[in-house]
Design a protein around this nucleic acid. Structure first.
Length: 864
RNA sequence: GCCCUCGUGGUGGAAUGGUAGACACUAGAGACUUAAAAUCUCUUGUCCGUAAGGACGUGCCGGUUCGAGUCCGGCCGGGGGCACCA
């Protein structure tokens, strides 16, 4: 079965074993529910035109080691891979060249697949999937329908970047310095109709359930910060113009209410118009236009220097003391958080302070820290001053008292606010999943709501939008799930429609339809209305879903990738569950991982997945920097291509080197010299196993009768233990060190049993699987493939020593060391130490103060 | 600004509060060879010393401890994330 090469010809050996594994379906995950399962998953890649980056094989090697190790430990392992294949680059390429993005995507996938296969990863290729495959996105669309039905999807006007010159919507990354990346044209903020997912409805659970997952603490904290829960009070400020009702604000500092000297509204706040006096109208209008052109990010960036704002001319009344408060408009207040309005307390808030100084507004200190130098703004704790009946009360107590007081008057209540915003879920692009939604008139929607075939698919309150041009309100009707997938039509041009809609808006035959409420069938509206009373007129949604959609649930599809009845069989979902280990970059710490958690919880609530969290254990591999210690990038010219190393040293060397570089989670620079080291290590193993003629090395005793030294046997068992422990803890660098230590001992041993060498090859196999297979086979391993052999067991009895090294310290400094029988007590150790020539001189004429003895380790003699 | 991380030889890195520098790279010396490559052996933190040996040493300053790379406080530096979130 093996090759016949005499030297370590990795270019021959590696393809040979890759073919062997493929023809034997070695990595097929069988749905065998009698065995314990282990599901190990990589974050699937976006197949870019640039091909594999060296960072990809880093994480993939780690999971491959785990997968191979778990198989040897008797687990039924699911280790799949697929393609996150929708994405902007393919669309941009299509716009430029006019070729269908699917063609470009397919070519990129083929290249990625070739590169990944050359690395010898033990993926179950029979479960490969791509998010662009209609058999896949059929279920992405199905999940969207479930969100829609549960009222978790709605339509709203949201600001997006619009480039009038290109007549298209741009993503944040396509806007550079306020200009379009392509062409450098000016861009502006423009409100467009968007689909939004109500992730905020899950904010509390997304936060609370973080405690149940085994994730890096830093990632948990980032998600916590992103969700941004804060407790505070909602307070109503009466307006002087009583007709306008009250102005509601959110504050985390109700204790500072007496220090409020003005109010601020976000420029987009609905009350701005009504509050603006005629003298201020022009200034306010100009300010609002200016603010509308900025993204939230710009607002924050620009605000580093000075604050901007305009007085509305109106006043509000402070509910605690009746003070008259001017109402301002300023873009440092965001419409998207809280109520879009704040009470400003300049003495105890930095932003309010800066603003008050800028516009010469009064500043009243109401918290006293009791310390001598109290520089304003002052945001720490203290006791209340200048606060009427609340003076002298501790701030924490004051928060409760003041809120309760307001609540009693009907002017406030305690509330919880989240930074988390609802998720903007649509793109005005071609290359994405079409929304399975048809826009119909109110009367047709009523028909659908009354029809038994469609009534159950509708949300409890309809999703609508008002087309201001025609003054028509449109109602969102879901397509029948049975008609999915809703595939992308062919288009003439991949350029956007020009009016803010995607290229799909130009495909009239696809867009305008007759829809049958009973069957879900449709025909183009260009044809006459078919007979029967169930046909209604509709226009398809032209937005497509963002790239996140497909990656939100792919880990579930791997469990049952070919199922065309449901997204995955419930029995298989129950067996395989969710990934036991998920490995990928920390750059996805918030968005991907939060979105996927949200969808998973929705599916959990639907009762279609059995657990409430998708990723039990998460690990982030570190970034590999270029040789120069900088981030790898084309422009720096420090990019390493895995193909190059595969050809020059072989993939076993590359895999081993990537793991030997340092801790998996660390950021570490690429160092080409290190590759030679691990390559030599593999060559040494080759030489110790095979002679120059390619026969079994004569030092290896085939009948296992060699008398190996106790020391060597002990090292072997230590190596089994350490390699196993290190793999379990993803400490691959130290596992490899241990194997190097063993190989050095192997080389020095005069005779060694075949059994021992085979055991060592098993330890090596997850890391360097090709050479391990080759040598296993050439040495006459007990099974055809090393994959079939059970992971070696270490014998704890073999790890026990009879002697232990004792370190002698004088006042904490090492002075001597000697061996003692295991279990020796302090007296025995002290007796030997006292007589030791390296110790005695230090003890002469000194008073013994104290002796610390750590059995088997250290004897510290403290003297004066 | 806030949060998170990391600072150990010439280099990548190792070290449950208990021998700092495992393992590897680089460099040097030697063995083998006609020679070279490969391989093997030895040396390789700094300083003093011919040596034996000693002193110093994990970014800096302090603390806890019999004992600190590890724990605590402060500072300096690198990297990452978030950011007018009321």
């Amino acid at each position: 079965m093996a090759t016949h090469c005499k030297d370590y010809e990795f270019l021959q050996i590696e393809p040979h074993w890759q073919t062997f594994w493929e023809t034997h379906h070695s990595f097929r995950a069988v749905d065998d529910t009698s065995k314990p399962k282990y599901y190990v998953l990589d974050m699937f890649p976006y197949p870019s035109g640039a091909g594999l980056h060296i960072g990809h094989p880093e994480g993939y090697t780690a999971t491959d080691i785990i997968a191979r190790y778990k198989r040897a430990k008797g687990f039924n392992v699911l280790h799949p891979i697929g393609w996150d294949a929708f994405g902007l680059p393919a669309e941009q390429h299509a716009v430029k060249t006019g070729t269908h993005p699917a063609a470009n995507t397919a070519a990129n996938i083929a290249n990625f697949k070739r590169q990944i296969k050359a690395l010898g990863f033990s993926y179950d290729w029979e479960r490969e999937l791509a998010t662009t495959d209609e058999k896949y996105f059929r279920w992405t669309q199905w999940i969207f329908l479930q969100l829609f039905k549960r009222g978790l999807a709605y339509v709203d006007e949201r600001p997006v970047w619009w480039c009038p010159e290109l007549r298209t919507v741009l993503a944040n990354e396509e806007v550079v310095d306020g200009k379009s990346e392509v062409g450098g044209f000016p861009v502006e903020r423009r409100n467009l109709r968007q689909w939004v997912l109500r992730i905020t409805a899950y904010a509390e659970r997304l936060l609370a359930d973080l405690k149940d997952v085994d994730w890096p603490d830093s990632t948990k904290r980032m998600q916590e910060a992103w969700i941004g829960r804060s407790e505070g009070a909602e307070v109503s400020f009466a307006l002087e113009n009583e007709k306008l009702g009250a102005l509601k604000v959110f504050t985390t500092r109700p204790d500072t209410l007496f220090g409020c000297t003005y109010m601020v509204l976000a420029p987009e706040h609905p009350l701005v118009d009504a509050l603006t006096t005629s003298e201020q109208r022009d200034a306010i209008a100009a300010y609002r236009r200016q603010a509308a052109a900025k993204s939230d990010l710009d607002r924050t960036d620009l605000a580093k220097g000075e604050k901007t704002g305009v007085f509305t001319g109106s006043f509000a009344i402070n509910p605690v003391n009746g003070a008259r408060l001017p109402v301002w408009v300023a873009d440092y207040v965001l419409m998207g958080y809280g109520t879009g309005a704040i009470m400003a307390v300049p003495a105890h808030d930095e932003r309010d302070y800066d603003f008050a100084v800028q516009f010469k507004l009064p500043i009243i200190q109401v918290i006293d820290s009791g310390k001598p130098d109290q520089k304003l703004p002052f945001i720490d704790d203290g006791k209340l001053i200048n606060s009427g009946p609340f003076n002298g009360i501790d701030w924490n107590e004051a928060k409760k008292r003041l809120t309760a007081d307001l609540a009693a008057k009907g002017r406030g209540k305690t509330t919880v606010n989240y930074k988390l915003r609802d998720w903007l879920f649509s793109r005005q692009r071609y290359w994405g999943e079409p929304f399975p939604i048809i826009w119909v008139t109110e009367s047709d929607y009523a028909k659908a709501a009354a029809h038994p075939a469609s009534a159950a698919d509708l949300p409890s309150s309809p999703v609508t939008y008002k087309d201001s041009a025609t003054d028509t309100t449109w109602f969102a009707l879901p397509v029948a799930a049975s008609t999915l997938p809703l595939v992308l039509p062919e288009v003439q041009s991949y350029l956007p429609s020009g009016n803010g809609e995607s290229p799909l808006a130009n495909v009239t035959e696809w867009l305008e339809i007759w829809l049958n409420l009973a069957t879900g069938a449709f025909v183009p509206a260009s044809q006459p209305r078919p007979d029967g009373c169930n046909w209604i007129r509709g226009r398809r949604e032209t937005n497509t879903m963002p790239q996140w959609a497909g990656s939100c649930w792919y880990y579930l599809r791997f469990i049952d990738p070919k199922n065309d009845k449901t997204f995955a069989d419930p029995k298989l979902l129950a067996y395989w569950g969710v990934p036991d280990l998920y490995v990928g970059g920390a750059e996805h710490a918030v968005l991907h991982l939060l979105y996927a958690r949200f969808w998973h919880k929705v599916l959990f609530d639907l009762g279609v997945v059995p657990q409430s969290e998708p990723f039990t254990k998460l690990f982030h591999q570190g970034i590999i920097l270029g040789e120069d210690g900088e981030k790898m990038s084309k422009s720096r010219g420090n990019v390493v291509n895995p193909d190059t190393i595969n050809t020059s040293h072989g993939t076993d060397t590359l895999r081993l080197y990537l793991m030997f570089l340092g801790p998996l989670e660390a950021m570490k620079p690429w160092n080409p010299n290190g590759i030679e080291g691990v390559h030599r290590f593999l060559q040494k193993i080759w030489r110790e196993c095979l002679s120059r003629e390619g026969e079994v090395n004569s030092k290896i005793t085939l009948d296992d009768s060699a008398a190996e030294s106790a020391e060597f046997v002990k090292l072997f068992h230590e190596t089994i233990k350490k390699v196993g422990d290190d793999i379990e803890n993803l400490r691959f660098n130290t596992a490899i060190s241990q194997m190097m230590i063993f190989s050095n001992a192997l080389q020095k041993a005069e005779r060694v049993n075949r059994r021992t060498v085979l055991g060592f090859l098993q330890l090596l196999a997850p890391f360097a699987p090709h050479i391990a297979e080759e040598l296993w086979s050439r040495l006459g391993g007990t099974t055809v493939s090393v994959l079939q052999a059970a992971w070696p067991q270490f014998d704890p009895a073999k790890l026990v020593s009879t002697e232990q090294k004792i370190i002698v310290q004088i006042n904490g400094k090492k002075r001597a060391e000697f061996l003692l029988p295991v279990g020796s007590n302090q007296d025995a150790a002290f007796a030997v130490a006292q007589a030791h020539s390296d110790v005695t001189p230090y003890l002469v004429g000194k008073n013994l103060k104290r002796v610390i003895f750590v059995p088997g380790k250290i004897l510290n003699i403290v003297i004066e």
